[in-house]
Each structure stands twice: as structure tokens, then as C-alpha cells.
Write a protein that binds this DNA or RNA. Structure first.
Lengths: 355, 355
DNA sequence: GACGGTAGTCGAATCGATTCGATAAGGTGA
DNA sequence: TCACCTTATCGAATCGATTCGACTACCGTC
């Protein structure tokens, strides 16, 4: 009998001998209801084990579901092995949770780099955040815009009617490159994040470079080239320690004469991998090779070294996203936001070895 | 005019000169519609930029929202620094995503160890997974049961009408303890996960041990005591590398005579911290002290050591949870599941130092 | 004592779809 | 030619709440 038919607002109203509309007012917390009436309704609700208005029915009228989607461009286990993604979402929920809004994970899988249309189509969404991915030609994005779901993109894609929240990636790496140049480095190599999530690994050629790909990767590469001109860029297949190590081994396992004296990784996680590669090749950091990262991520397992990196305010970025979402849901159109970054010099960069 | 009023099924039906019910049939993919009619409806939808039936309205009738909540007993940044949580949810989404069901994050914050009632009350949920927490006396749990939302609990809480998915924690650590005993260890200490998320740290006294707390902690401690009898247990405030290091330093920074010859951490992340502590104290592992963990987590940054640990099938556990959720939503009541674990002996345990 | 005002409650329309029984059109067999 | 069956479409009720205009007392005021 219990889950046979759960009580509805109408049931409660009937038991309290009031109209459904009055009962509704009670649960909405209106002050236009007489205290005696309110108590009667609440008592009836308690008697019947009524847990409050059905969220779905409420959403139908109010045009709000309290659900915000987070598009993750990979399977969770991969995306969340990067503390940056996690911190970002942490900032988002910090703002959204108190408003009674939850974050719905929309991960991709091994093949697709985002949710399927079938997934998106069936879920009630007030807004969507592109959290860790974002190519301009995403079919899911088109679907969302057609449905009128507002979108916030973190670091891309840059599209009309999508609120952008990002950082000056290019200026950040440019600053880092300046630091390396000042130290005397001339032979620098870059370890890039995936240009597309298609499993490609290796030196980035002109053709691949020309294709559609992440704004982030492009900008962070350009920042280095602003100082050093064209540099070899080794693409990884994922933002993961192992991938960084693999790339590092490729770049560093060569005679000292042709070896880069500094490696700029496009994330701290990749940089951690490069450090491991250097270690396993018997190269000292920074005496034999300098290593730098990007993000300023908290990697509690990384010490004793302190990574030279470009620090971005990741959690704050998440909060900004959260506020942008709040605005959009309220019908306001927030401005794009570009947060600031700064160079943090650690113990992993130093003068190049004498040649 | 565009977001003025988005087209509805009725609009589309009118334009295609059919009844709304027929148009509905088209979008439901029914084969009882004449192909010509179907094409007309689809054409009308395309003309109007109609993106398919509104998920909220659909949910109202079908009593399904396509949203499953994941209760996280901490803020995301903390909970997801543990690869085990992430892998678990990865397994869950792996099963749920293809069914068009999404996972809604319901994190706690610094103070509360789960979502507020306000958060829960406003969100449409088909089911809820207690992913990384679970005390029996959780008010959120009561609310959910009253609302008739089915609940799956991972490793607890154990309550009526909640499907339980877990592992034989006690047998796992017992096996590990056996291994240590076989090596000759007699003085063993345990580094426990938080008994409650209240920031407490330090040696677990009788009083605290008697209070309500995590099943997991209790079982994993008992497993060790099955072999060694009462052992000192040092509680951490969070499942994090830094916490493990802190605990490790407390336990190991004593003269060799009183120092435990083996430390059993209740998670691999904590064990990693203990390893760091040993390292910074100049203790060799396993020559001076053996260290073991629990989970069999992938910590790509951990090598060159291979941690001795109790391996649980985390991703598979997530899949099992996903299937349990599927069953519950379909109205079936799945059985509780206890998955298997096995000992994996690595390079961090060995005979105790000669005394 | 008639009138304006207010506090509290109620009715009915609405949100956007789904679903099932009814119905009309068209086809078959005796 | 008529009864019967199938196929495609339609109508209307339903899911569970919200919301706003309308209505009823009841009070105070001139």
C-alpha cells in the first residue's frame, strides 16, 4: 500500500480540507496563509508521509529543473585524474549547490568525446557547462542551442551565444617562455595536450596543426613560439602522467647535443610525467634539463620538487562559471570572463647545462 | 521571436495537420504511423526548429527523469582526489549513460557531509547512489525513502530497503594481516580512514571507537585485529596523501624499539602518504618498515615502488551499482552484492628488521 | 447602515507531453 | 452487398503541481 500510490498535494489538501491551491501556497512558504491553516496542512502532510511537492511537476510549470549539465569530453576516470577538472567543478558546485542546483555529469566514453544526443535529449537541463572539452563543431552543442539551453564554455569552444570563461593562455606561456629565455635556454620543446581526443600521439606536423582543435592547445603553443619561434611539439593522447612520461622519454632520450634544454608541458600532470621520464633517464632537473608545467594544480604527491608553472585560479574559475550559470538561468546574459594567470617559479627550472 | 516562445509538440502537430497524439507517436518512434505522416511531422519539426519533446513534460507522465543522484560526502575537490571514488562513478556512468541516464552530483561541503534537504527536495531523482559516504543516521536518507526514491549504498550505510553493494573488507585486511604475520611481523599499526568527517585526527580511543561510524573503517580494522589482536589505530581527517603522511610521521618517528614494523593504511592514498613519511624520516621500505594499503587504486605517480595492497574491483563495483540502479528504476528489487577482493603483494612489504 | 479595504481561500487554466480507447477509412471474404 | 477486420489517426483524460484573478467574510470608517 505504501508505494502503491504516494500522496500528492491534492491528497494532502483534501485531508486538510483546503483547496490544492492553498496547500501549494503552504509549501511555497507564502505568508498569505493563516497560521492555523498552514499547521493543518503541514499536519496532514506529516500524517500521510508527504515529502513535499514533486520536483518534476514543479519544474513543468516553473520551467526550471534545478539540473545543470557538465559536459566531460572523456570518460570520468580519465577526465578526473586531472585535479584541474575536479577543482573547476568543485568551484561550480560551490556556487550552485546552495541554490539547490545540481551538476549532472555528461561524460563521453572511449569513442565519443562528449555525451550522445540521446543522453542529452532525455534529461531536463537548465543550462550546460562545457567543462573539459570543446570543439566548435560539436553536434551536441547545436542540439542544446536549438533546445534553448544556455551554455557556458570553459576555455572553449568559442561560439555565438555561448558564454566564455577562460584565461589568457597565450600570455601565460609567453611569460613562462620569457623566464626560460632569461635563464639562457634556446632549445625548447613543448609537450602538448591532445589536439583532438582521437588517440593521436607524436610530433605535431603542419597538417595536424592546421586541423580543428582545442583553443587551449593552440594558444599555449603560440605563447612559447612568441619567444622561441617554431618549436617541436609532441602531442600526447591524454592529459595523464603516463602520457607525459612517454612524451618526455621521446624528447629527452637523445644525445645531449640535440636534446632540448627545457621542456614546457601544457599541464602540470604532463609535466609530472616529464619529470619521471627525466628521472628514469638519469637526467637531473634542473641541472640537465628544465621542466615547466601549466595550471598550478595541487599535486600532493609531487614534492620534494616544486614545479615551475603558470598558475591559474582554477577554483575561482569554477565559481565564475557557477555565477554565469546562475545569471543565464535567471534570464540575464553575463559577459565573457577572462581570469588572470601568473608565473610561479619553482625548483624545476634553471640555467641550461653548459654546451 | 526565437526564444519568445519555443515550439511545442502541439505547434508541430498543427503545422503538420495531425493531432498532437499522432505527433507524439512519431517522436516515440512508433511504427503504427504511416511513413508519409511521419515524414510530414518530422519536416514540420525541422521547419520550426523543434528539438524533440520536452524532457520535463515527458518525465511528468512517465515518472522517470533520467537523473540519478550521487551523494558525495565531502566537497568534490576532496572526494575526487581519491581515484577510487572516481573509478567507481566511472563504472556507474558506463552502465547508465547508454541508457540515457545521467549522474547528478550531490556533494557536501566543508561542514555537511552530504547534500542539504533543500538540494534534494528540488531535484528530480529516479534513484540515488551513496557513493563515498554513508552513516546510518543521515537525514537525507530518510527524506529520500519518504519520497520513494530507491537508494543504492556503496559500502554502507546498511539500512532496510537500501540495496547494498560492497566488498568483504574484513576478510581482505585479514588476508593482508596474515601475509604480514607470515613475514614475521608482530608490531603492526593501522592508519584509518576518517571515522566520521568531523576533522578528528589521532589515536582512536575506546570512546570514539564506540560511536557511530563507517562500516568500512570498522571492518578493515577488525580484519587486522583478527590476526594481531588490538593494534594502535591512528585516525586521519581525510583520505588524502598529506593526511597519510602526517599519520605516518606520528607512528614512525619514534625509536626503533617502539616503532611498528608494519603499517597498514586503510587506503592506497593514505599508504602513499605513509611511504612519503617513511622516506622523509630516512626509513627504507620494506627493510625498516613495511607499508600496505587497500583498494588497488591506480596511482600512476607512485612508482618505482609497487604497493602491497588489497585489490578490489572498483570499476566493476561501479558497474554493479549501475545495474542495481537500472533494476530499481525498472521496478525490480536487486539483491545485495558483495564483490571479491584479493591480496596483491608488491615491493613495500618484507620481513621485519632484526630487533 | 452603506461602502471601501483587506486577509484568507478557492477555481480553473496552464505547463507539454503521453496513452488508451474510440473512430473512420479502406480492404477482404463469403 | 454486408459484416468484419486491420490500419492509421484522433480526442480526451492524465501526470502533479503553480498561479492569478475572483470571491467571501469581516473589519473599520464616515
Amino acid at each position: 500500500m505504501s508505494d502503491r500510490s504516494r500522496p500528492t498535494l491534492a491528497t494532502v489538501a483534501a485531508r486538510a480540507a483546503v483547496a490544492p491551491s492553498t496547500a501549494s501556497l503552504v509549501f511555497a512558504g507564502s505568508d498569505r496563509v493563516a497560521p492555523a491553516t498552514r499547521d493543518r496542512v503541514l499536519a496532514a502532510a506529516a500524517d500521510l508521509g508527504y515529502a513535499g511537492p514533486d520536483p518534476v511537476a514543479r519544474s513543468l510549470r516553473s520551467r526550471r529543473s534545478g539540473v545543470v549539465g557538465a559536459v566531460i569530453g572523456d570518460r570520468l576516470a580519465h577526465a578526473f585524474s586531472d585535479p584541474v577538472s575536479v577543482q573547476l567543478l568543485d568551484g561550480v558546485t560551490e556556487v550552485l549547490s546552495p541554490l539547490g542546483v545540481g551538476l549532472l555529469l555528461l561524460p563521453g566514453d572511449a569513442d565519443r568525446h562528449g555525451p550522445t544526443l540521446a543522453q542529452l535529449a532525455h534529461v531536463p537541463l537548465d543550462a550546460v557547462v562545457y567543462a573539459t572539452c570543446g570543439l566548435e563543431d560539436d553536434p551536441a552543442l547545436v542540439h542544446l542551442q536549438r533546445r534553448g539551453v544556455p551554455v557556458v564554455a570553459v576555455d572553449g569552444p568559442c561560439v555565438d551565444d555561448v558564454v566564455f570563461v577562460g584565461i589568457p593562455d597565450r600570455r601565460g606561456t609567453a611569460e613562462l617562455a620569457g623566464h626560460l629565455a632569461d635563464l639562457g635556454h634556446r632549445r625548447v620543446a613543448v609537450v602538448t595536450l591532445p589536439l583532438r581526443l582521437d588517440g593521436t600521439r607524436g610530433l605535431v606536423g603542419a597538417a595536424r596543426r592546421a586541423g580543428t582543435h582545442h583553443r587551449t592547445v593552440r594558444e599555449r603553443t603560440l605563447g612559447v613560439e612568441d619567444t622561441f619561434g617554431p618549436v617541436p611539439a609532441w602531442e600526447t593522447a591524454a592529459n595523464a602522467v603516463e602520457e607525459g612520461e612517454r612524451a618526455g622519454r621521446q624528447l629527452l632520450d637523445v644525445p645531449a647535443g640535440g636534446r632540448p634544454t627545457a621542456v614546457v608541458a601544457q599541464s602540470d600532470v604532463l609535466a609530472a610525467g616529464v619529470l619521471r621520464a627525466a628521472d628514469s633517464l638519469g637526467l637531473r632537473v634542473p641541472e640537465d634539463v628544465s621542466v615547466a608545467g601549466f595550471d598550478g594544480a595541487e599535486l600532493p604527491w609531487l614534492p620534494p620538487v616544486r614545479l615551475t608553472t603558470v598558475v591559474q585560479p582554477t577554483t575561482e574559475k569554477g565559481r565564475v562559471v557557477g555565477r554565469a550559470v546562475t545569471d543565464l538561468v535567471a534570464g540575464r546574459r553575463p559577459d565573457d570572463v577572462v581570469l588572470d594567470v601568473h608565473l610561479s617559479v619553482g625548483t624545476t627550472t634553471g640555467p641550461p647545462p653548459p654546451s
